[in-house]
Design a binder for these strands. Structure first.
Lengths: 194, 194
DNA sequence: ACAATACTTGAACGATCCCTAAAGAAAGGA
DNA sequence: TCCTTTCTTTAGGGATCGTTCAAGTATTGT
């Protein structure tokens, strides 16, 4: 019937996501996206109706469904406990200290840049925070059941604290990627649980 | 000898700071600043050589010297202890829940938007984080001395955790300004200290 | 082989970006 | 008073922004 698309939309969206992740929404121009993906403006707008904004929302979705699950791999397991929660933080620190990881988390960056003025972005970020909270809550419950943590711990409240700690860790890591500081943050957040 | 300036540069910088605080660096246009301050481009560039970027750096400085000390008023006192540290967090929550406070902290916002790509901004943010850490450390030491906290607490490490918690609180608050959630974060961060 | 269809490409649109240059206005010193 | 100096204002320059459109190209069904 007609000519077929010469690129894989998911692969292109990966490149787009990486650009937004690296520079943020406003600092990334459509020209940047064209350069990063090799897809010319006409094709980009043809494949992603809604333009730059739709590409960004699509990037947030893709990040949630591709990058986040990878970071949460161990923590999301049914048997995950306090060790897996700590492992998640260790992964964050490792990322922040690496050259490619300096950009932090796309969802955190988006929350700070846009959430206050963009309800759609805020909703996506809230979804992410809720997911993190559920993971931590489950892990903490498991830890309490296994007597790795005292029974007095409130799993939901402590999970919320850990969520905030993870967000804060990435803010601090952006300005001051110092391993000693980042480790102290995690150590002291967890030592309070015992 | 010559004509005199018709505006107060500090007052104008206040208006500029508020704009950057509200919208972020890239989302704020010079036209926005002109509209907010009433000062026309020519005068603005005459009074602030370096243009938009200099105005932004100036805003960060002014924020550090005007807004931050106000938030830290109680915590920065020599006798400040654990109660004043908590008071600081209570103030943060109150801000985040208010209509004007949704923008969070200019320095946190700047850290996330620019610190990874702008060393000068990163340095200002690091200075702020260090100041916060010093305040918390001093308060924790006082608390330990007064036996309000057990001696096993490491003041510096715990202070670093509290710094991260405060940053995380503002990220969470931006996407999800829910009092119950924010209180849980602070409660659980502090309950871990006892 | 040919028409129909959906893609790619490249140019260019109007808007907005940050910034500056020229002209008019006000104040102090001679 | 008038000249000098520094401000204010206005207009617009050059670049880049996000987006669209017309033309060219490839693929499919007939």
């Amino acid at each position: 019937m007609a000519r077929r698309r010469e690129f894989e939309t998911e692969q292109v969206l990966d490149g787009v996501m990486r650009e937004f992740w690296e520079r943020g929404y406003r600092a990334t121009s459509v020209d940047d996206l064209v350069r990063a993906t090799g897809v010319k403006p006409g094709s980009l707008y043809g494949a992603f109706p809604g333009g730059k904004r739709a590409l960004f929302i699509g990037s947030l979705d893709r990040y949630s469904k591709l990058v986040v699950p990878q970071k949460l791999r161990d923590l999301d397991e049914p048997g995950a406990s306090i060790a897996e929660a700590r492992g998640y933080f260790d992964g964050l620190i490792e990322d922040l200290l690496s050259a490619e990881g300096r950009q932090g988390c796309l969802l955190v960056n988006s929350a700070v840049e846009l959430a206050a003025h963009d309800d759609q972005v805020a909703a996506v970020v809230r979804g992410h925070l809720a997911r993190l909270e559920r993971c931590f809550t489950a892990a903490l419950r498991t830890a309490i059941r296994r007597k790795e943590l005292p029974r007095r711990i409130d799993p939901v409240g402590a999970a919320r604290m850990l969520v905030a700690t993870s967000q804060g860790l990435m803010v601090v890591g952006k300005a001051n990627p110092d391993e000693e500081v980042l480790r102290a943050i995690v150590d002291n957040a967890f030592s309070g649980l015992h």
